[in-house]
Design a protein around this nucleic acid. Structure first.
Lengths: 238, 238
DNA sequence: TCAAAAGTGTTCGGTGTACACCCATGC
DNA sequence: GCATGGGTGTACACCGAACACTTTTGA
């Protein structure tokens, strides 16, 4: 057993001190045109009533990635998670008042067209208008959001936010929600096609109630992460 | 105490399982025109004789960053480290045969002109020609190297590899060693000045023994990490 | 005067942005 | 026909790569 209440860390066969470890997921998705994060309301102390990230402990036979998948399953169907990536490990000594807990945060993405059934204590929150969060969870949200925004620019990570098939106006709304600023459909189309990220399915989408030209339907060529804009500068010679 | 020899993880006041945790540093620097990593030879089992990354445990009152600084001090003077950044946490269950150990890796940089006095068991190794490393340490080296290479393209992180004042031919050698492919001085100069990363000091460097035009001496304008090529695409409108 | 090394000028292709204009639909 | 919304074409600025050419030094 560890020694709660003492300031001696447990020491095992490796001679290294042991610390409680948790995994936290920053689940991001575009909901109603806004980039949102999934938070649940803590029932018990500490920080009871505060909104916090889904997550929890790590079983002895689990890797961190397996652990976060397990905990995510309690909030959203894991099959709905289109992307999962480690972001950072935080270690402030008093980040949890009970004992020292290290926390590894993950970025998880859910496509717009997937509407997971959420437990009663769980809600989506606009990342631009977060409530007070428990512990240091807002730092994780910030880091994960930054990571997503950066990757939207130089990878095809958009596949994890979009439906399997989509029109460019839909994609434009997704990207502009994620980035938090308007994006032009014209140029988004050009960039995504020029980079070979997407291809037309051949179909078109029916126009809205007020008419308009039917939009071309696209799909992502790859549904695994690909760097589409490798390095802007200092490329190797051919 | 933790329970070595049992498969039950210790559980403390938070109700979370505890695991031994170590920090590892991938210290990179350009030595003799090559990007090198600092490794030390393990004296004791497990993996005795194998080359491994500097690092070690985390004291109860230390954050991970403080811990890695402490362990680095045993190998290189911490004042020689011009950059330190967390890269990733690995968690394979059997990555250490003795007991489960989680490991958080850091990227550390040392400028070329700094020649730390190394302990007898410690040497620089070309990252392109690594020896067999202990545990999963080569994964950390790979991730840290990738991180450095990426950041060389869109940030001013070069300041952490270069001397305070340098000429463009020197910088070209550093960048091309770090990236592992030739880089043109002409274009490197253009990119770095165009982005406002560097400024001439006003001085020039004496030519080599065979003559040649004296090179202009530059310094980095900022010695803190700055993103110089913010996002190649999908910029916010003005 | 010549070789060596650094720096400058110029050209070229590509890329992201802006904006005008054209196309397909519902009413 | 007209409003609505989507797509295409064009122009522009800028950037990085390549390469020819000039400048400044040592021998």
């Amino acid at each position: 057993m560890a020694s709660p209440g003492t300031d001696h860390a447990a020491v095992g066969a490796s001679g290294l001190a042991a610390y409680a470890h948790e995994v936290l997921a920053v689940v991001l998705s575009v909901r109603e045109g806004r980039l949102c994060v999934l938070l649940w309301r803590r029932e018990r102390a500490p920080e009871s009533g505060r909104w916090s990230l889904p997550g929890g402990g790590v079983a002895p036979d689990q890797r961190l990635r397996e652990a976060i998948s397990t905990h995510l399953a309690a909030k959203v169907d894991v099959r709905n998670v289109s992307w999962l990536e480690q972001v950072a490990t935080h270690s402030r000594v008093d980040r949890d008042p009970r004992e020292r807990v290290l926390a590894t945060g993950y970025l998880a993405l859910v496509p717009v067209d997937v509407v997971p059934v959420l437990p009663a204590d769980t809600e989506w929150f606009d990342v631009a208008d977060l409530p007070a969060t428990a512990f240091d969870h807002h730092h994780f949200v910030e880091a994960a959001t930054d990571r997503l925004r950066a990757k939207l620019s130089y990878t095809n990570i958009g596949f994890a936010l979009a439906p399997r098939e989509f029109t460019m106006p839909v994609m434009r709304d997704l990207v502009s929600a994620a980035l938090g600023h308007p994006v032009s459909t014209t140029n988004l189309t050009r960039v995504m096609t020029r980079r070979g990220m997407v291809e037309p399915t051949g179909g078109t989408a029916a126009p809205g109630p007020h008419g308009g030209r039917p939009a071309t339907v696209y799909r992502f060529r790859e549904r695994t992460l690909t760097v589409t804009d490798p390095y802007a500068v200092l490329k190797p010679p051919d």
